[in-house]
């Protein structure tokens, strides 16, 4: 794997389960020592001198949980003191971060009495308040409802340009909304990288018809892939997609139409599709 991330960018790591996203993040945060390779973070040799960069980066590991008997305020405040903030600065920054993430109202409630969304946001508040130059967030919004996720997105969007953020997520809309750049991983390798638009251009068409319910459908003239019992047909316009969906429904199947997303790029690039020479279409077989 050869990966450079420029300062001030928000980079999202995408890929299926087991692609190596978390392992990569653990190496980048200096938690996990790789057996070989080179790692330069913020201009420092992170393998030789991890101590030099540790106070300049922060991370929330996947599945991290806050201590259950402390409050969001106590958690953020103490973390900031551990980071080297003075007591008075830690108080100010803890309040600012909790307000930003909508946690100020519940600042004095112990974690055990808070929902999973509040707990996760308290962890995000911890790292956002830290003022670190480089932030690693491993699936920070997993388990959050639509409202909580957006408050995290807003907080991350505010950081753009100030800090470099490396994010892993399974939420495609999160990656599309936030990322300056997306890196797609599979089996420990980078399979593609670029802006959202650059990656979207790797899949033909603008719309996708997801069709299911028929065994051997025919999508003549269209590119499509088969995913389990579902066909994803790539078309260029909204009108075309309606036409394909109607035809399919006439044959007795069911179809829905949506815009092309990064999910289609993931499916195309890491789904194991091969080119079917006979039809000129893509098929999983």
């Amino acid at each position: 794997m050869d990966l450079n991330v420029n300062r001030g960018r928000l980079v999202t790591l995408l890929g299926p389960n087991g692609a190596g996203k978390t392992t990569l993040v653990r190496i980048l945060t200096t938690e996990l020592k790789p057996s070989k390779g080179r790692l330069t973070i913020l201009g420092e040799d992170a393998l030789r001198n991890p101590e030099r960069i540790r106070h300049r980066i922060v991370s929330i590991p996947q599945e991290a949980k806050p201590i259950y008997f402390v409050t969001p305020y106590e958690l953020v405040f103490s973390y900031l003191v551990f980071r080297g903030f003075s007591i008075s600065d830690a108080r100010i920054e803890a309040r600012r971060a909790l307000e930003e993430l909508g946690l100020w109202e519940v600042r004095d409630k112990v974690m055990n009495n808070l929902s999973g969304g509040f707990k996760r946001r308290a962890l995000v508040a911890m790292v956002l308040a830290s003022g670190a130059e480089l932030i690693f967030l491993d699936e920070p919004t997993t388990g959050l409802d639509v409202f909580s996720r957006r408050s995290v997105w807003d907080a991350l969007a505010r950081l753009k340009g100030e800090a470099t953020v490396v994010l892993t997520t399974h939420y495609i809309e999160e990656a599309e909304f936030l990322s300056d750049e997306v890196v797609m991983l599979n089996n420990g390798s980078v399979v593609a990288r670029g802006t959202v638009d650059e990656l979207l251009s790797k899949v033909e068409g603008e719309y996708v018809v997801e069709a299911y319910g028929l065994d051997k459908p025919v999508f003549e003239g269209y590119s499509y892939v088969k995913l389990n019992n579902r066909y994803l047909v790539y078309v260029n316009s909204s009108e075309e997609s309606s036409l394909v969906a109607k035809e399919y429904a006439k044959m007795g199947g069911k179809a829905l139409v949506r815009r092309k997303t990064l999910e289609d790029v993931v499916i195309r690039l890491v789904g194991g599709w091969s080119n079917d020479e006979a039809s000129g279409d893509l098929d999983s077989n």
Binding site: T29, E31, H55, A64, F82
Partner: peptide, 17 residues
């Protein structure tokens, strides 16, 4: 417990502790 269950030790890795 702090290291494996809460991942708290991992979060503290990037502090002055």
């Amino acid at each position: 417990y702090l290291r494996l269950e809460l991942k708290f030790q991992s979060m503290l890795l990037n502090t002055r502790l």
